[in-house]
Structures are given as structure tokens and as C-alpha cells.
């Protein structure tokens, strides 16, 4: 080989050799990288499998938790339907749905006092019953039909005897007439034959001499109007939430067992509380 030929082959030959060396190193490097790539792929597959397992386990617990919370929040839950709560200790009423207070106001509740039934050894206790009651009906312009204890209490307060008037009875008056029942009225029949019905109200019951008359149920004299406010939510067994003609009693334990509210409050409650609403008294 001539010098000229050698020189002409030297540069391309060297380049070939260098490039061959580089390619060899590259191939070896690539093998390392491919091994690393395989290891990373395997690691990712493992990580992904762990993730699926972890997420699956978390989902089971989260789903159980969600179901439990949904169940609690569902409309089937009693706490999520409107209800009334009355605190005897605080003389306060709340109308709630869940934790939300829709309306609250002060009330008067039972005094807790006792009243002896004259001559029987028995007694009434004026307390608001604790427990779960239900709004059984809603009344407009309710009249109060006073129970026997009202007359007993009035008689004891005024140191009078009690007489229970019945149909056909005639109770002589000091003025020469008689007190008797005509139709649905308790009347005074005067000697000249006039019959004048009694007008009664709380504190102005029928009195004959030193006797306080208990009118029979069904007579107009056993119905007091205007003392319970415009509305009443009846709770059964003679108990109710009603208004009052004695607003200064609100906030105190002075009632005979009913739950008294201000007249404007009973109108609000009448509007927003439905029949069937539970009333929890504690």
C-alpha cells in the first residue's frame, strides 16, 4: 500500500474505529438502561397493584361510612323531621329539624304543686308530663273547659264550699230565686219567672251564698273563651300548648300542666307545626 493510499484511508479508518467504539459503549449503556427500564416497569406494576389494593380497602370503609352518614341524614331519620322540644327546667320551647332551630320561645310549664280534693284524700299534681307527646289536633279560637280542679282551687282560694250542679237540680239563692239548668245554660230563675243565664269567666265563677257551683260539662258556663289565645295545639290527656291571657306568667313554672306561650307565639306555632309532630318534654 502506497503512502498516499494509507493516508487516504487513515482518517475514515480512524473515524470508523472511533464510531465503532462509541456504538459498542452505547449498546452496553442501552443494555443497562433497558434493565433499569424493566425494573421500573415492574416496580410501577407493583406500586399500581398496591394502589388498587389500598384504594379498594379504603373504598370499602369509606362506603360503609358514607352509608352510615347517609342513613343518619336520610329523611327517614326521626331527628330530620320537625319536632318540638320543651325544657321544663328552662321553661323554653324549641321547634327543630335536626340540629336546626326553626323557632324558639319562652313558655310556662307546670308548677309541680299539689291540690287536695276536698274530702277524698286524693290530690291533683300540676305538672307538665315528661316524655314524648304528639300534636293530635290544632284548634282555632279554642275555649277552655275547666276541669274540676279549677273549681276546687277557686273554692279553696275563696274559702267556699263546692256544689256540683246537675240537670233537674235547683239551688235556692238568698234572693228567693233558684240556680238551675235550662237547655245549655246555667240560669237564675227569679220568682217572677225570668231566667237569666250566668256570664262566667276565670275568677268570676257561679257563686250561690257560700257555695261555688260546678256547672256540668256541655253547658255554656263550663266554657271559658279568650283565655287560651287564638290557637291551641292539643297534645292529648287534657294537655296542650296554648296562648294565655296572663302573659306575665310566661317563663315561670306556674301552669296546671299545659304549656303556655304568648298569644303571638301560639299563632306562629299554629302556622308552622303540623298535626302529628312529636313533642319531647324533658
Amino acid at each position: 500500500m502506497s503512502t498516499t493510499t494509507f493516508r487516504s484511508l487513515l482518517i475514515p479508518g480512524a473515524a470508523t474505529l472511533i464510531l465503532a467504539g462509541v456504538a459498542g459503549w452505547q449498546l452496553s449503556d442501552l443494555q443497562v438502561l433497558r434493565a433499569e427500564q424493566a425494573a421500573h416497569r415492574a416496580a410501577l406494576a407493583g406500586d399500581s397493584a398496591m394502589l388498587v389494593t389500598a384504594q379498594g380497602a379504603a373504598r370499602v370503609v369509606t362506603d360503609s361510612l358514607t352509608a352510615l352518614l347517609d342513613l343518619r341524614a336520610s329523611s327517614d331519620s326521626a331527628a330530620n323531621r320537625p319536632y318540638l322540644v320543651v325544657s321544663i327546667a328552662d321553661n323554653r320551647l324549641w321547634f327543630r329539624r335536626g340540629d336546626e332551630v326553626l323557632f324558639t320561645t319562652r313558655v310556662a310549664t307546670g308548677s309541680g304543686k299539689f291540690l287536695e280534693k276536698a274530702g277524698t284524700g286524693e290530690q291533683w299534681k300540676f305538672e307538665t308530663p315528661r316524655g314524648r307527646l304528639v300534636v293530635q289536633r290544632k284548634d282555632i279560637e279554642p275555649a277552655w273547659v275547666p276541669p274540676d280542679w279549677h273549681f276546687e282551687e277557686a273554692a279553696q282560694k275563696r274559702k267556699l264550699d263546692l256544689i256540683r250542679l246537675e240537670k233537674g237540680m235547683e239551688v235556692p239563692t238568698p234572693e228567693g230565686g233558684v240556680v238551675t239548668i235550662v237547655g245549655n245554660n246555667v240560669v237564675t230563675r227569679y220568682p217572677d219567672g225570668r231566667e237569666v243565664p250566668f256570664e262566667v269567666r276565670d275568677g268570676a265563677e257561679i257563686r250561690v251564698g257560700n257555695q261555688l257551683v260546678i256547672p256540668p260539662f256541655g253547658t255554656n258556663q263550663r266554657r271559658y273563651t279568650g283565655v287560651l289565645g287564638a290557637n291551641r295545639l292539643y297534645l292529648g290527656d287534657g294537655y296542650a300548648i296554648h296562648g294565655t291571657d296572663n302573659p306575665s306568667s310566661i317563663g315561670r313554672s306556674v301552669s296546671h300542666g299545659c304549656i303556655r306561650v304568648r298569644n303571638e307565639d301560639i299563632e306562629t306555632l299554629f302556622r308552622i307545626v303540623s298535626v302529628g309532630t312529636p313533642v319531647y318534654v324533658y
Binding site: R72, A78, A79, Y83, V85, S87, D99, P278, Y280, Y282
Partner: peptide
Amino acid sequence: SLERGEIVLR
């Protein structure tokens, strides 16, 4: 809390 069923009274 004082409760009765699901109802929190106080």
C-alpha cells in the same frame, strides 16, 4: 347529651 332515640334533648 340527654337523648331519646335520635332526638338530642339537651
